[in-house]
Write a protein that binds this DNA or RNA. Sequence first.
DNA 1: CATGAATGAGGTTTCATTCAT
DNA 2: TATGAATGAAACCTCATTCAT
Lengths: 201, 201, 201, 201
Amino acid sequence: MRRKEGDKASEILNAAIRIFARDGFDKAQVSAIAAVAGVGTGSIYLYFTGKTNILHIIFSRFWDHLSQEMATLQNRDPLFRLNDQLGLFFDHLAADRDLARVYLREHHRFLETATAQERHGYAAALETGRAAFLEIATGRGDGSPQPDQVGMDLSQAFLFGGVRSALEFLLSSDIPAEKVRSNMLTMAMAGILAATRRPER
Amino acid sequence: MRRKEGDKASEILNAAIRIFARDGFDKAQVSAIAAVAGVGTGSIYLYFTGKTNILHIIFSRFWDHLSQEMATLQNRDPLFRLNDQLGLFFDHLAADRDLARVYLREHHRFLETATAQERHGYAAALETGRAAFLEIATGRGDGSPQPDQVGMDLSQAFLFGGVRSALEFLLSSDIPAEKVRSNMLTMAMAGILAATRRPER
Amino acid sequence: MRRKEGDKASEILNAAIRIFARDGFDKAQVSAIAAVAGVGTGSIYLYFTGKTNILHIIFSRFWDHLSQEMATLQNRDPLFRLNDQLGLFFDHLAADRDLARVYLREHHRFLETATAQERHGYAAALETGRAAFLEIATGRGDGSPQPDQVGMDLSQAFLFGGVRSALEFLLSSDIPAEKVRSNMLTMAMAGILAATRRPER
Amino acid sequence: MRRKEGDKASEILNAAIRIFARDGFDKAQVSAIAAVAGVGTGSIYLYFTGKTNILHIIFSRFWDHLSQEMATLQNRDPLFRLNDQLGLFFDHLAADRDLARVYLREHHRFLETATAQERHGYAAALETGRAAFLEIATGRGDGSPQPDQVGMDLSQAFLFGGVRSALEFLLSSDIPAEKVRSNMLTMAMAGILAATRRPER
DNA sequence: CATGAATGAGGTTTCATTCAT
DNA sequence: TATGAATGAAACCTCATTCAT
């Protein structure tokens, strides 16, 4: 009588996403997660060190998976690659709206309290995006020896914020994900181009 | 024997912003707010119905002020007007980093639980931005009778998300606000243009 | 623009009876009493030492008045006198149902915490009843030198309990006070007779 | 490793009776109950929904037990049966003076706030007494087709009030319970007879 | 490994009382 | 006298975490 897939830890993570999405992290009760996961309350602590740890692992796994998939995107054109990366990020969250909800409301906790180890996948994903960005900037470069790193990081952040809002929009409306996705990417691409365009002479 | 500046309610709101920024809404203690405000714990309840109400009023006042200032922006070119609006939004939050922090982490609670009355300023600000957006879309229009409203709302959301991330970036770095602001606006403008551009023939 | 009758203290006492009847002593708020009395909250403390003191004075005045009226009952037959006394007690509370409610629920606090001074009227009323009782017992006596004082006190208490329940009954029904009163007195008289009857030979 | 006697819920109820008797319901602290019961404060809420619920269950159990025992009283003479019922009521409370104290001061809360379910035993006890009363009234009847129901209810209430006062008397004196009991029943019987006696021709 | 009964620290809110005006 | 804004102590209840079984 095995559960659909994966071990008990995954069951718990999955249940936690539902509960965090419904109640928010602070109001969420560990016992509720256990109930949804179909395990005893105490069993949670066999797999996780506590409620916060569950949240960390949720995002840790999310970013691990995402960064791995991002690494497989091989489009030669860095602009399209970045486009694909953002699309992938959007798709992963659009596919699990509860997870998206948790991302929107609780991801800051992950960044604030997770260990470097737990943030590894996140850092990797960020770096992958950064690489594409750099390639765009230098590729268009006509010799510019020092692309503005700060500006690039900010641009990258800006795009993430845009995708974030697109997800928020998706959750609060009945618009098909595909339409939101394409609109969102249109703006993102334009933003990238603007950000990497060299200041007028 | 008046208080330093403003009434006691404002003192409490101000203190709450500091505490919410430091501890987050859920962990924030009313007694800590009272201590920072220099009033007795019970006095909080003379001015507010509870902790949640304080949060609502913080954002309610913020949006009321902002929407009023946004209404004064009179640039004839809607694109520049929108640019000014986003800048204004950014400036208000960049000027009070604790408030920005609270905005980033707790604004969703405001949208989820505040009354329509409390959300009035927010709605007004949104509408002001929407109007500029519509003007851009139709102004550029060559007869297009029905600008895509959903697309416009999404674009607006996208921009807010971008500004949001710019603020997040600002808080986590030592970059001067001015630099973040200009970079952010560059991307925003490019996004707007892309969003309102008619699909290629 | 004087109030109907009496001074501010009486207004407060009257208001307190309404509030105590409605909310119970513990839940009753001093500010609510002040509001009903039409005075400022702080003014309460010009006339009374606190909430408990108000309760004490309510009952103190009640018993003072009652004991004085009881002293005027001059029926020569002690049985009828006792009957009149119980009737008087009933009438006073039946005439002010809020006061009756307060009596039913809070009188024990008066006995437990009031000073001897405050309980003076109560003691006097009790003594008046006791005297009638004793007269009945000895009057019927055929030489019994020592009427059973304990038994008499208990009998008196029993009667008070009966009247108490009659009042409770009155408050929870629509029966006319007069009917309740007469039924109640019928039982009381029978009880008295039984209590003072000498054990069968 | 079982607890001394009974389950933890009973321990808590027992402790609550002591604390309610000592401090009154409103002043009683849940933590004090827990301490006396020898459990953690939080454990209270595993067995009861709150402080009020504890009070309800105390009286609910009391009346359940009492009504069951009352049902076993089989004296053919309804007068003696009623006598036994009152005696039983007295005995149960005289046997636990703290419970008696709680009854005297807090029973009205039970009647005012308990659910019909919780009041079931109370209603049953009342009905048992009513039945005996009716039997007395009709048994003595010489054809009276409609005994005065209101008068009977009032008489029953009167008796309960008398027993109530007897208990109050018992608590405030050193008189042996047995003496209080017999005196009390003497008066009660006389009252019943008077109440059920047909008005003189 | 698994459980869930038990714990107790901790926080929001109420309200009797005070006192500056 | 009269006021009512201000106070702050106090208490119910929740829930993350533990541990005996």
